[in-house]
Amino acid sequence: MIPLVRVDNRLLHGQVLEAWIPRLGARTVVVADDAAAGNPLARAAMTLCLPAGVEARISAIAAVDFPALAAAAAPVLVLVREVASVLEATGLGLTPAMAPVVNLGNVHFAAGRRALTPSVYLGELELALLRRLADAGFRIEARALPTEPPIGLTELERRYLAAHPG
């Protein structure tokens, strides 16, 4: 099963390994990212940071077999870099039945994005993509750590309208 698909610009880092993996009881992290998969330095560094007993599979998004991950009994955490990557994954067979929750962990500032939480900056494009995911049945939540309260998409949209541009 896939208890969480996390959008995180930094992919594998302390918040994921120290907080989410123990919380979800996951032993496997799938890093679905084309750039990381094709970068030997990224692969070496990600392998280096894993605690004992946790395995990371780093592969291009198109190479991930989402139905197989969902069918497995052990919980698997899927990490992607951008909001658009989740949509790409749905094109490859990912459904809300396989992975009910899409978590926005760290989405950095870029032109047109506004600060919606301390670690999540989104623009109109990302919000529109997230709305499509929500309409398809995914639950969208923004939070960096499992100890924080989850912030839903409706609240994120409200904050975007209330936020100052830039």
């Binding site: 594998l12 880092h13 302390g14 990381a36 330095l41 990224a42 940071c49 605690p51």
Partner: peptide, 20 residues
Amino acid sequence: DYKATLQGPLAAVGDGFFWT
């Protein structure tokens, strides 16, 4: 590219070793 690639994994190593 070097910074972007290493910042996450090395942060995880540092959190796991120094902080916890």
